[in-house]
Amino acid sequence: MGINGIVKGLGITLKHFIETYWVDIKYKGKRYGTESGIEDRKSFDTKGIFTVQYPEEKIKVPEAFRYIPFLVYDEGELGEKEIRCTSCGICAKVCPPQCIWITRSVNPETGKPVPKPAKFFIDVDICMNCGLCAEFCPFEAIRMDHDYEIANIDRFAHHIYDLDKLLKPASYYAEIRPTQFKEEEDARKEKEAKKAAARAAKQT
């Protein structure tokens, strides 16, 4: 039994070892803790040390990334929360593990349903982060969050999210998903412009 194969293999590991120093020297100490350094470690021709030193450095998640869902609200002029959800129930129906519970609001005087959720729950111990709720929501009201740092020490107190915990402003949504948000806003504006044009045409 020879040792040629083993020596060859060790040569490859040695190459990897030397590369770590070589790349660090090339970057002159700017490889760690900088945006461009993290970008380099994600790029297709990355060499050398591959580790992203969480929590000091974080890998930026892509826009499509999905974790737990959240509900979007628009901020009104007076700072009130205008919840986009109309409690149509599509997300609750499409949810594969059935972890969404919605109580529809009812007008106390007439007894008729109002298009607003009175209660909204998501059990994150059941949620499988599949994103179907966000995909099929017709009102752009439920979206998938990017926040993954949600570990805690008590599940019974924290893990059924209610409206308070689920609601996040549209500005946050715009921040984590800029492209998608812009597309939806443009589509909405276009629709409104069309409506306004139709109305104007009617009046004249």
Partner: peptide
Amino acid sequence: DKFLPVDVYIPGCPPTPQALLHGLLV
């Protein structure tokens, strides 16, 4: 937790490596 005393719960399906590390830091 029906059987063992759990110290940290990490939601996610599956939690990303960074989420797991966050849980371990907790």
